[in-house]
Amino acid sequence: MSAVLEKARPAIDLNGRISIYQPEQEGLIYPELPVFASHAEHRQHLKERLVAACRAFALQGFDYGFAGHLTVRDPEHPGVYWTNPMAVHFSQVKVSNLILADHDGRVVEGRHAVNRAGFVLHAAVHEAHPDIVAMCHAHTVHGTAFAALGKPLEPISQDAAAFFEDHVVIGDEAGQVAVEVKAGHKVANAFRGVKAAIHQNHGLLTASRHSIEAAAFWFIALERCCQQQMMVEATGIKPRLVTEERARYSREHVGSEYIGWLHFQAIWDQLAATQPDMLD
């Protein structure tokens, strides 16, 4: 297709749908966004999906001792958030051992301690951005390695295009463990209008204004994209990049918060069927 024709290409008419992936034909099995009758019902749903995100991280091999923290804002009390317990393996997180913490790092519900680094980073982001409902971070192999390069992802594929102009590289406090509150504020400042960050010499972070499912899936996807780019670079051959226009087009259709949520539904179904203890 010529550049002239590409620029003239009209936007897709979604006919009121959120995404082109939603079927136009009625009566087909397809994940639907949940609707809640009460805060309690909504809270239970969020806690179950937070646990599923932790279990998904375990399956991906994202564990590293006690490092790694996932959070989701409480639907009734936005000044507190649910998170995984300190020093509990992702595979052992369940609804009953989640903790509820405030922006000062104080545990207001639950028996376990809160991860100090998790409190510093996540509390700062949640407090600075009331629209952000969930956040994920873990010390992963490929994301940590890629973060040492101090550069953004390139649009080498449709998958990577999901992050085109939608992630940042944070150089502040690079390599210094985030246990002081000021470090959290610097990370929080970077999350204006993006869903992901590469923290130099540290690793990956994702945030969602939609759901914990979206934050978790985009973290999994970001780790995978970092691995793919390093594999390509290891060949010594310069990759052919997706053009900016095509990268933006792909991001619009495969990089949204809704699509992240939708991807996670397959993960949820698999975990619900094979790890029912997560709901204990």
Rank of each mutant, 00 (worst) to 15 (best):
M1F: 04
A3Y: 01
A8N: 01
R9K: 13
I12G: 00
I12K: 13
G16T: 09
S19K: 04
Q22I: 10
E26S: 14
G27K: 06
G27I: 02
L28I: 14
L28S: 03
E32M: 06
E32N: 06
P34R: 10
A37W: 00
S38M: 08
A40G: 12
Q44R: 15
H45Y: 15
L46G: 06
L46N: 07
E48N: 14
R49G: 01
A56T: 09
F62H: 13
G65T: 10
A67R: 07
D74G: 08
P78W: 07
P78A: 13
N84H: 11
F90A: 11
F90H: 06
Q92H: 13
S96H: 08
A101Y: 01
H103L: 12
E109N: 10
G110C: 10
H112T: 01
A113W: 02
N115L: 10
R116Q: 13
G118W: 02
F119Y: 14
L121S: 12
H122L: 06
H126D: 07
A128W: 00
P130S: 11
A134G: 07
H139V: 08
T140G: 02
V141R: 14
H142N: 15
G143H: 01
A147C: 04
A148H: 08
A148S: 15
E154V: 04
I156S: 03
S157N: 07
Q158G: 13
Q158S: 09
A161E: 04
A161D: 03
F163A: 06
E165G: 00
V168F: 03
I170K: 04
G171N: 11
G171F: 09
G184M: 06
G184P: 05
H185Q: 15
R192T: 13
A196E: 09
A196F: 03
I198L: 15
H202T: 12
T206P: 04
T206L: 07
S211A: 11
A214E: 14
A216R: 03
C225T: 07
Q227A: 13
Q228S: 12
V232A: 12
E233W: 10
A234H: 06
A234N: 11
G236K: 06
K238L: 08
P239Y: 05
L241Y: 08
E244D: 14
R248L: 15
Y249V: 00
Y249N: 11
E257I: 02
G260S: 08
G260R: 09
G260N: 11
L262E: 05
A266T: 13
I267S: 03
W268P: 00
A272P: 00
A272G: 00
P276K: 04
